[in-house]
Amino acid sequence: MDRVRFHRIDALERRAASRDGEARRLLDARLAELMRAYAGDLKRAARKNTAADDAGGSVVGGLIDYLAQQTAARDSAFAMGEAAVFPQLAALEDFRAIWSQIRSESQLRQSLRQAPGDAGPLNSGRLVHRSLTLMRELSPGYLQQFLAYVDALTWIERMSGDGVMELDDALRTGSVAKRGRDKPRKRRGE
Protein backbone atom coordinates (compact mmCIF):
# COMPACT_ATOMS: atom_id res chain seq x y z
CA MET A 1 0.00 0.00 0.00
CA ASP A 2 2.64 2.53 1.05
CA ARG A 3 5.99 1.44 -0.40
CA VAL A 4 8.10 4.02 1.35
CA ARG A 5 6.66 3.15 4.72
CA PHE A 6 7.03 -0.57 4.04
CA HIS A 7 10.70 -0.15 3.07
CA ARG A 8 11.28 1.93 6.20
CA ILE A 9 9.89 -0.91 8.33
CA ASP A 10 12.01 -3.42 6.43
CA ALA A 11 15.19 -1.33 6.92
CA LEU A 12 14.44 -0.91 10.62
CA GLU A 13 14.01 -4.68 10.97
CA ARG A 14 17.41 -5.29 9.32
CA ARG A 15 19.02 -2.72 11.59
CA ALA A 16 17.44 -4.30 14.70
CA ALA A 17 18.75 -7.73 13.66
CA SER A 18 22.32 -6.42 13.70
CA ARG A 19 22.07 -4.86 17.21
CA ASP A 20 22.17 -6.33 20.74
CA GLY A 21 21.08 -5.27 24.19
CA GLU A 22 19.23 -2.05 24.92
CA ALA A 23 19.53 -0.77 21.33
CA ARG A 24 17.87 -3.96 20.05
CA ARG A 25 15.03 -3.65 22.58
CA LEU A 26 14.34 0.00 21.56
CA LEU A 27 14.44 -0.84 17.86
CA ASP A 28 12.12 -3.83 18.35
CA ALA A 29 9.64 -1.68 20.26
CA ARG A 30 9.65 0.98 17.50
CA LEU A 31 9.35 -1.75 14.85
CA ALA A 32 6.33 -3.31 16.58
CA GLU A 33 4.67 0.13 16.80
CA LEU A 34 5.23 0.83 13.08
CA MET A 35 3.95 -2.63 12.09
CA ARG A 36 0.75 -2.21 14.16
CA ALA A 37 0.07 1.17 12.51
CA TYR A 38 0.75 -0.27 9.05
CA ALA A 39 -1.53 -3.27 9.67
CA GLY A 40 -4.30 -0.96 10.87
CA ASP A 41 -4.01 1.17 7.74
CA LEU A 42 -4.13 -1.96 5.56
CA LYS A 43 -7.34 -3.12 7.26
CA ARG A 44 -8.96 0.30 6.82
CA ALA A 45 -7.99 0.39 3.14
CA ALA A 46 -9.38 -3.12 2.61
CA ARG A 47 -12.68 -2.14 4.25
CA LYS A 48 -12.88 1.00 2.14
CA ASN A 49 -12.29 -0.98 -1.09
CA THR A 50 -14.94 -3.59 -0.25
CA ALA A 51 -17.43 -0.82 0.58
CA ALA A 52 -16.69 0.87 -2.76
CA ASP A 53 -17.09 -2.45 -4.61
CA ASP A 54 -20.43 -3.02 -2.89
CA ALA A 55 -21.59 0.49 -3.81
CA GLY A 56 -21.30 -0.17 -7.53
CA GLY A 57 -17.65 -0.75 -8.38
CA SER A 58 -14.41 0.90 -7.59
CA VAL A 59 -13.00 3.90 -9.35
CA VAL A 60 -10.23 1.77 -10.83
CA GLY A 61 -12.79 -0.74 -12.11
CA GLY A 62 -14.69 2.08 -13.81
CA LEU A 63 -11.50 3.34 -15.41
CA ILE A 64 -10.65 -0.14 -16.68
CA ASP A 65 -14.13 -0.48 -18.19
CA TYR A 66 -13.82 2.93 -19.87
CA LEU A 67 -10.41 2.06 -21.34
CA ALA A 68 -11.73 -1.28 -22.62
CA GLN A 69 -14.63 0.49 -24.36
CA GLN A 70 -12.32 3.05 -25.96
CA THR A 71 -9.94 0.33 -27.14
CA ALA A 72 -12.80 -1.67 -28.65
CA ALA A 73 -14.16 1.42 -30.44
CA ARG A 74 -10.71 2.26 -31.83
CA ASP A 75 -10.10 -1.31 -32.99
CA SER A 76 -13.47 -1.52 -34.74
CA ALA A 77 -12.88 1.82 -36.50
CA PHE A 78 -9.45 0.64 -37.61
CA ALA A 79 -10.86 -2.67 -38.87
CA MET A 80 -13.42 -0.79 -40.97
CA GLY A 81 -10.65 1.27 -42.56
CA GLU A 82 -11.49 4.48 -40.78
CA ALA A 83 -8.77 6.50 -39.14
CA ALA A 84 -9.20 6.67 -35.41
CA VAL A 85 -9.76 10.24 -34.31
CA PHE A 86 -7.99 11.19 -31.12
CA PRO A 87 -8.59 14.49 -29.39
CA GLN A 88 -5.82 17.05 -29.69
CA LEU A 89 -4.59 18.63 -26.51
CA ALA A 90 -4.62 22.43 -26.53
CA ALA A 91 -1.46 22.49 -24.42
CA LEU A 92 0.30 20.33 -27.02
CA GLU A 93 -0.57 22.79 -29.78
CA ASP A 94 0.71 25.68 -27.66
CA PHE A 95 3.91 23.78 -26.99
CA ARG A 96 4.41 23.10 -30.71
CA ALA A 97 3.95 26.79 -31.52
CA ILE A 98 6.40 27.87 -28.81
CA TRP A 99 8.95 25.26 -29.86
CA SER A 100 8.65 26.29 -33.52
CA GLN A 101 9.24 29.93 -32.60
CA ILE A 102 12.25 29.10 -30.41
CA ARG A 103 13.73 26.82 -33.08
CA SER A 104 13.33 29.40 -35.85
CA GLU A 105 14.88 32.14 -33.69
CA SER A 106 17.81 29.86 -32.91
CA GLN A 107 18.33 29.00 -36.58
CA LEU A 108 18.04 32.64 -37.57
CA ARG A 109 20.62 33.71 -34.97
CA GLN A 110 22.96 30.98 -36.19
CA SER A 111 22.60 31.99 -39.85
CA LEU A 112 23.04 35.68 -39.06
CA ARG A 113 26.18 34.91 -37.10
CA GLN A 114 27.69 33.22 -40.16
CA ALA A 115 27.21 36.18 -42.49
CA PRO A 116 30.41 37.03 -44.37
CA GLY A 117 31.56 40.58 -43.76
CA ASP A 118 33.68 41.20 -46.86
CA ALA A 119 31.51 39.36 -49.42
CA GLY A 120 30.40 40.89 -52.67
CA PRO A 121 26.78 41.71 -53.53
CA LEU A 122 26.19 38.37 -55.30
CA ASN A 123 27.78 36.15 -52.65
CA SER A 124 25.32 33.34 -51.87
CA GLY A 125 25.94 33.53 -48.11
CA ARG A 126 25.30 37.25 -48.10
CA LEU A 127 22.16 36.86 -50.22
CA VAL A 128 20.77 34.22 -47.85
CA HIS A 129 21.56 36.47 -44.89
CA ARG A 130 19.80 39.39 -46.52
CA SER A 131 16.73 37.36 -47.51
CA LEU A 132 16.35 35.92 -43.99
CA THR A 133 16.62 39.38 -42.47
CA LEU A 134 13.97 40.76 -44.83
CA MET A 135 11.73 37.74 -44.25
CA ARG A 136 11.97 38.25 -40.49
CA GLU A 137 10.91 41.88 -40.85
CA LEU A 138 8.12 41.36 -43.39
CA SER A 139 6.60 37.99 -42.47
CA PRO A 140 7.77 36.19 -39.32
CA GLY A 141 5.16 33.44 -39.83
CA TYR A 142 6.45 32.67 -43.30
CA LEU A 143 10.00 32.67 -41.96
CA GLN A 144 9.06 29.98 -39.43
CA GLN A 145 7.50 27.86 -42.19
CA PHE A 146 10.50 28.39 -44.44
CA LEU A 147 12.99 27.45 -41.71
CA ALA A 148 10.95 24.31 -40.90
CA TYR A 149 11.13 23.37 -44.59
CA VAL A 150 14.88 23.97 -44.72
CA ASP A 151 15.31 21.99 -41.50
CA ALA A 152 13.44 19.03 -43.05
CA LEU A 153 15.59 19.20 -46.18
CA THR A 154 18.74 19.31 -44.06
CA TRP A 155 17.55 16.28 -42.13
CA ILE A 156 16.95 14.38 -45.40
CA GLU A 157 20.41 15.39 -46.65
CA ARG A 158 22.01 14.12 -43.42
CA MET A 159 20.15 10.84 -43.80
CA SER A 160 21.49 10.37 -47.31
CA GLY A 161 25.02 11.17 -46.13
CA ASP A 162 24.84 8.54 -43.38
CA GLY A 163 24.18 5.77 -45.88
CA VAL A 164 20.47 5.43 -45.18
CA MET A 165 19.38 6.53 -48.63
CA GLU A 166 22.49 5.77 -50.70
CA LEU A 167 22.34 4.49 -54.25
CA ASP A 168 22.81 0.87 -55.16
CA ASP A 169 26.45 -0.30 -55.32
CA ALA A 170 25.86 -1.57 -58.84
CA LEU A 171 24.78 1.86 -60.06
CA ARG A 172 27.78 3.53 -58.44
CA THR A 173 30.31 1.09 -59.88
CA GLY A 174 28.70 1.37 -63.32
CA SER A 175 29.04 5.14 -63.41
CA VAL A 176 32.64 4.98 -62.18
CA ALA A 177 33.51 2.40 -64.82
CA LYS A 178 32.07 4.59 -67.59
CA ARG A 179 34.19 7.54 -66.51
CA GLY A 180 37.28 5.40 -66.52
CA ARG A 181 36.68 4.33 -70.14
CA ASP A 182 36.19 7.85 -71.46
CA LYS A 183 39.04 9.38 -73.39
CA PRO A 184 40.90 12.05 -71.53
CA ARG A 185 39.87 15.53 -72.59
CA LYS A 186 42.45 17.76 -74.14
CA ARG A 187 43.10 21.03 -72.43
CA ARG A 188 43.31 24.27 -74.30
CA GLY A 189 46.69 24.92 -75.63
CA GLU A 190 47.77 21.25 -75.83
Rank of each mutant, 00 (worst) to 15 (best):
A55R: 10
G81K: 04
R188A: 13
R47F: 10
R103S: 06
M165L: 15
D10Y: 11
R8S: 03
P140Q: 04
F78D: 15
A152M: 11
G40F: 06
R44L: 13
G61R: 07
E166H: 08
L63F: 03
M1V: 05
D53M: 09
H7K: 07
F6D: 02
R172E: 07
D28L: 15
I9K: 02
R5W: 05
R36K: 07
F78L: 14
L138C: 00
G81W: 09
D151S: 15
E22A: 15
D53F: 14
S18L: 15
G40W: 05
V150C: 10
Y66S: 08
E33D: 07
F6I: 00
N123M: 00
A148I: 05
A68K: 09
D162L: 15
L31I: 04
F78A: 15
A11S: 08
D118A: 13
R113T: 06
S106T: 15
A55I: 06
F146G: 05
F78G: 10
G180S: 08
G120H: 00
A39G: 05
G189V: 08
Y142V: 03
R30F: 04
A115W: 05
R126H: 03
D94A: 08
D118P: 02
T50C: 06
R24E: 14
E13L: 09
A119C: 02
A97D: 14
R179Q: 12
R74D: 14
R3K: 07
L138R: 03
R179W: 08
E137Y: 04
L134M: 09
G189K: 14
P140H: 01
S76C: 00
D118H: 12
V176W: 08
P184A: 15
Q107W: 06
L34G: 00
L89P: 01
A170L: 00
S175Y: 04
L34K: 01
L92P: 04
S124L: 08
Q110V: 09
G163E: 13
R5C: 00
W99G: 01
D41R: 09
R187K: 13
V128I: 13
S106N: 12
S18Q: 15
Y149P: 04
A51D: 11
E22Q: 09
T71S: 11
A148P: 01
P121A: 03
R5L: 02
A91I: 07
A90W: 05
A170C: 00
D168E: 02
D151R: 12
A52Y: 01
E190Y: 10
R47H: 12
T50H: 10
N49T: 05
T71Y: 06
S76V: 11
Y149H: 14
I9V: 08
P121H: 00
R113Y: 07
Q114P: 01
R181F: 02
V60G: 08
R172F: 00
T50M: 08
D41C: 03
S111P: 00
S111Y: 11
R30H: 12
M135R: 03
L27K: 05
V128Y: 08
L122E: 03
G125W: 02
G40V: 04
Q88L: 06
P87D: 06
R188I: 04
D162T: 12
L26A: 15
Y142L: 10
R113C: 00
A84H: 09
T154V: 13
S106F: 11
P121I: 02
R5E: 05
A97H: 12
K48D: 10
K48N: 10
A29M: 09
Q114S: 06
